[in-house]
């Protein structure tokens, strides 16, 4: 069953200018954070969005939980169009769609106790009165491994470590028993030794509540570990979507291949490495045609003229490239 469908979603941010620049301005400039992406997510799946910082993956997540207003396109959740829903229409939806932020140091109100933070969603949606909410919060604390719950209930965020804070953020998102979670790099700011535990916790809730998870990360190794499908983004576009194993074994897009080459591994791999030259381009003025062409070793003249479309290559594998690595596979 399709849980979430994104169709040609766009979000441009206007570039802030000084007064003088505005006087002399020729035209408004925009950062094309998300520039027409489409994908489908099936229920109970983990779908990973992978890409460098600045490629628009976080903006995509924020658009889906509607912390950001899309400029164009469609977001369809469980069959209903939520693209331009207002706050009032969004309220019932907020019970079903939750987000876990990257930075656990900033996502918890420093002046609220841990217990209040976790119980707040129940109170906001008038699901429980104060006493019931407290009991639920205590149960949830135990569920996320913050024991003894009675002690943690009374603490303030600054008394907790990063990993513990992220557990609190997960508890807050899960207490409403949502159906869909946007996890925006939930482990990237956490000590490496604790990452696995946090991921495990997330997966525990996935089976417990039959969750679908949109997992946003820059780390292909993490994405590989937990996701069913991986989509690779570059400069506001999706360049490749495929089931996890397929994408890892048969990357068709040069960018995906380059990302895979950059994952360090203890086992010496036979696969040849692909290293891109240069830096990610400026999203205000993205390159014409295929956005990767200035950096791509296989680029030819058509790449700078025509933008490649996402094309089906069998095996649930889609790629947006004029010269996919399919011929170089063997």
């Amino acid at each position: 069953m399709i849980e979430l469908e994104i169709i040609d979603l766009k979000k441009y941010f206007p570039v802030q200018k000084s007064f003088l620049e505005r006087l002399l301005a020729r035209e408004k400039q925009f950062i094309k954070a998300v520039d027409g992406i489409s994908f489908k997510m099936f229920s109970r799946q983990v779908f990973s969005l992978v890409g460098e910082s600045g490629c628009g993956k976080t903006t995509t997540g924020r658009l889906i939980v509607r912390l950001e207003k899309p400029d164009a396109g469609k977001i369809v959740f469980e069959g209903s169009d939520i693209t331009f829903a207002d706050e009032k229409q969004l309220r019932p939806l907020r019970r079903k769609i939750q987000i876990i932020f990257q930075d656990p140091y900033a996502s918890l109100n420093p002046r609220m106790r841990i217990g209040e933070i976790i119980a707040e969603p129940l109170i906001v949606h008038s699901i429980a009165d104060k006493k019931e909410a407290k009991e639920e919060a205590l149960k949830m604390l135990e569920n996320v491994g913050l024991t003894p719950p009675h002690m943690f209930y009374r603490l303030f965020p600054h008394q907790l470590s990063g990993g513990q804070r992220q557990r609190v953020a997960i508890a807050r998102a899960m207490i409403l028993k949502p159906k869909f979670i946007v996890a925006d790099e939930p482990v990237s700011m956490i000590d490496v030794s604790l990452r696995a535990a946090i991921l495990k916790l997330l997966m525990k809730f996935k089976t417990l509540y039959n969750l679908s998870i949109l997992f946003i990360t820059h780390d292909l190794a993490v994405a590989r570990l937990i996701s069913d499908t991986i989509a690779v983004m570059y400069l506001g576009k999706i360049v490749e979507i495929a089931p996890t194993e397929e994408l890892i074994d048969n990357p068709l897009h040069p960018y995906t291949k380059a990302l895979l080459s950059s994952v360090p591994s203890l086992i010496r791999r036979k696969r040849e490495k692909l290293v891109l030259k240069g830096e990610i381009a400026n999203p205000i003025n993205p390159p014409s045609g295929c956005r990767l062409h200035p950096r791509c070793p296989y680029a030819e003249s058509i790449c700078s003229r025509e933008e490649p479309k996402l094309i089906f290559y069998g095996n649930n594998h889609y790629v947006a490239c004029h010269f996919p690595l399919v011929n170089r596979r063997y």
Binding site: V65, R94, I99, F101, S107, L108, N109, P121, V124, R172
Partner: peptide, 14 residues
């Protein structure tokens, strides 16, 4: 614009 205010919005707080 801080994250914890966004988090409150995301849980549906008025």
């Amino acid at each position: 614009s801080l994250l914890y205010v966004e988090a409150a919005k995301a849980i549906g707080a008025r």
